[in-house]
Computed example of a mutant assay.
Amino acid sequence: MASKGEVLVSCMLKNTGDVKGAEVVQLYVRDKISSVTTPVKALKGFSKVELNPGESRKVTLVLKKDDLKLWNAAMDFVLEPGDFEVFVGASVENIRLKGTFKVE
């Protein structure tokens, strides 16, 4: 359960191989329109998950309000309203899930 000012991002992870393995699930965010330049995909969280062969597990990462803030032109650390994209994957170049949400 998320507390106020948090977004929970969940995905299912499955080991389809024949041996025990580990995967690092990474969470990236993009502020679609901001008053200053921001990264196209900024890493905001990750979790290393070990799975036995054939095992599946729900992985949940927490995106906090401060994770969405930026330093504006006046050098204030602020959360600007608008649309955000969220990405989940094994790396920034291996994105497997995408979603959007709005901050008002």
Rank of each mutant, 00 (worst) to 15 (best):
P39R: 03
V88R: 03
L63A: 09
A73F: 10
K4A: 12
D18M: 14
L70K: 11
N52W: 08
A74T: 02
L97S: 11
F46R: 10
D18V: 11
S35N: 12
V92R: 10
K98H: 14
D66W: 12
A74D: 04
A73R: 14
L43N: 06
V7Y: 00
T16H: 05
V29R: 04
N94Q: 14
A42C: 07
I33T: 15
V92G: 02
E85I: 01
L61Q: 07
E50W: 04
V29H: 07
V78K: 06
G5A: 12
L51P: 02
S56G: 06
N52D: 13
V103C: 01
S47I: 11
K64Y: 06
T37C: 09
R57W: 08
I33C: 13
V24F: 08
V86D: 01
K64F: 03
Q26T: 05
Y28G: 00
A2G: 14
T37Q: 07
V9F: 14
G82F: 02
A74E: 06
K58R: 15
K69T: 03
G45P: 04
Q26C: 13
G21A: 14
L68E: 00
G54P: 00
V78I: 13
T37N: 05
K20F: 14
E80Y: 10
T60P: 13
N52Q: 14
G54Y: 03
R96S: 08
S34D: 11
V86L: 04
S34V: 05
E85W: 00
M1Q: 13
S91Q: 09
S3H: 13
N94W: 12
L43P: 01
G99Q: 12
E50Q: 01
G45R: 02
V29C: 13
K64I: 02
V62D: 06
S47Y: 14
I95Q: 10
L27I: 02
E93I: 09
V36I: 08
T37I: 13
K14D: 08
K20S: 12
K102P: 03
R96H: 04
D76R: 09
F101I: 15
P53H: 04
T60N: 11
E93S: 15
V29E: 07
R96K: 09
M1Y: 11
L97R: 08
E80Q: 13
D67Q: 05
S56K: 08
V19S: 06
D18H: 15
S3D: 13
L8R: 03
S10L: 05
P81A: 02
G99L: 09
F46Q: 06
K20G: 15
E55V: 07
G82V: 01
L43E: 10
K69D: 01
G89R: 00
R57M: 08
T100D: 15
T60H: 07
A73M: 12
F46G: 10
K4F: 06
K69W: 04
G89Q: 02
N15H: 05
K14V: 15
V24H: 10
M12I: 15
